[in-house]
């Protein structure tokens, strides 16, 4: 099918974009990489009367580091993020996650911010943002700037705390201490597909003990799910005394998987339990 008619604007500045969104009073949609929005327009599941294309706003692109954070412009393309050496050294988990988003061709257009703003429950980047403790900075014409922690951003499938007139202008990812190990596993039917079960996280080990942990599931509930009980149980443990299966059980207890035509919730739990235990063992046994 073809998209229904709409007006199209490609503003050059953040202020202009926010002005257009405010004026449209909910009738506008932001177009970033289009790798999710364009199919929704073609299927007429989305019928905005105004499309605000943010691809020509230079201020929304690029990666920088300051004050213990990595700042990512939302319109940074997924393939640009993979090739970015700053991001590679500061946020290796995020780069691993991006490599699992769609295909080479969709990553040439798809953006980091588009994936984070969409909030698809089986997507890699929202869960990785939650695991790492990232946040987004958003701007609206009427209320100015605010910051939302990734953990508070996701409310339900494709539902976020973003208001209709808000534009994500920055993604802030804290840099984890030295001694941090990364954990990423995904089961999907084919490379490039959304996850049936996915797990992403960071564990900091200092003097043989876990001092910090951020772990999240994707594809295991209506939103990315932070494995809070498992994180808490890991803190302070010596890495050679961790009971991987017991921690995995705690991690599964926080999930709320669903049945769909790809897999049952029971299947997701069974796979998730094993995936978690194995990933945890591999991560803790790996030489620092």
């Amino acid at each position: 099918m073809k998209p229904a008619p709409f007006d199209y604007y490609a503003p050059a500045t953040i202020e202009e974009a926010c002005g257009l969104l405010a004026e449209a009073g909910g009738g506008a949609t932001i177009l970033a990489g289009g790798q999710t929005l364009m199919p929704l327009l073609a299927l007429r599941m989305s019928q905005p009367f105004l499309l605000v294309d943010i691809n020509r706003i230079a201020a929304l692109k690029g990666v920088s580091r300051a004050n213990g954070h990595t700042r990512i412009g939302p319109v940074t393309r997924q393939n640009e993020a993979i090739a970015d050496t700053t991001l590679g050294s500061a946020q290796p988990l995020l780069v691993t996650a991006v490599k699992h988003v769609g295909h080479h061709q969709t990553r040439n257009r798809g953006t980091i911010g588009g994936s984070i703003a969409l909030g698809e429950p089986a997507a890699e980047l929202p869960a990785t943002s939650v695991a790492l403790g990232a946040s987004v900075e958003v701007r609206s014409a009427r209320r100015g700037k605010r910051r939302i922690a990734a953990e508070e951003l996701y409310i339900g499938p494709y539902a976020t705390a973003l208001e209709f007139d808000e534009l994500v202008t920055d993604i802030l990812v804290p840099e984890w201490p030295t001694g941090t190990r990364w954990m990423f596993k995904e089961l999907a039917q084919r490379p490039g597909d959304f996850a049936l079960v996915g797990l992403t996280g960071a564990i900091t080990v200092q003097d043989g003990k876990v001092t910090k942990a951020g772990l999240a599931w994707f594809g295991m509930g209506p939103t990315p799910i932070k494995a809070r009980q498992a994180e808490a149980a890991l803190l302070g443990q010596s890495i050679d005394q961790v009971d991987h299966a017991a921690i995995a059980e705690l991690a599964i207890a926080d999930t709320a998987p669903f049945d769909d035509h790809h897999a049952t919730s029971e299947y997701r739990r069974t796979v998730g339990r094993r995936m978690f235990a194995r990933a945890l063992r591999e991560t803790l046994e790996a030489r620092a």
């Binding site: 199209y8 490609a10 177009l31 289009g34 790798q35 364009m38 199919p39 073609a42 294309d53 691809n55 393939n79 080479h104 061709q105 969709t106 040439n108 257009r109």
Partner: peptide, 19 residues
């Protein structure tokens, strides 16, 4: 529908002509 835009392979059904 894959074509090259500025040297990169992209899906031309997921881009608008105006872009």
């Amino acid at each position: 529908c894959t074509v090259m835009v500025d040297g990169l392979a992209v899906r031309s059904c997921l881009m608008l002509a105006v872009q």
